[in-house]
């Protein structure tokens, strides 16, 4: 009995590591037709990985459905872009990513996380 419970514990830890860290399948999307909707809700951006082409203007349309104050800001720290997202009102952020690379975007506390991949 004791061994079984310990085993369950080990499996539980393995599961946490796998589910939250190793499991890589994220919701991905490419900005097509220059605009993309991003839902901000329950701790995640959906989609959280966004592909865009360098030098092309894109519009990210953030729709915040989470009333938690943590979710009210979105920051692209490396791109020097930030915005206050109104609750349940779409917010359009239009810009042209010039450099290629991966740019993280997060909420103010970096709990919400997403990535903009400029190719």
């Amino acid at each position: 009995m004791g061994i079984l419970i310990n085993l369950i514990g080990v499996l539980l830890i393995a599961f946490i590591i796998w589910w939250f860290w190793l499991y890589k399948k994220q919701s991905e999307a490419t900005v097509e037709g220059s605009s993309l909707d991003i839902i901000v809700d329950s701790g995640v951006y959906k989609p959280s990985v966004i592909h865009a082409k360098a030098g092309e203007e894109i519009t990210l349309r953030f729709i915040r459905k989470d009333s938690n104050p943590c979710s009210e800001k979105v920051l692209f720290n490396d791109l020097d872009i930030s915005a206050d997202l109104p609750f349940e009102t779409p917010y359009e952020m239009t810009f042209t990513p010039d450099k290629k690379g991966e740019f993280e975007f997060t909420c103010q506390m970096a709990m919400y996380r997403g990535k903009l991949i400029v190719e």
Binding site: F20, Y23, Q26, D41, S42, G43, V44, N68
Partner: peptide, 11 residues
């Protein structure tokens, strides 16, 4: 909130 984040591999 916990459930939705969990589904998205987030905590």
């Amino acid at each position: 909130g916990a459930l939705k984040s969990f589904k998205n591999h987030n905590a």
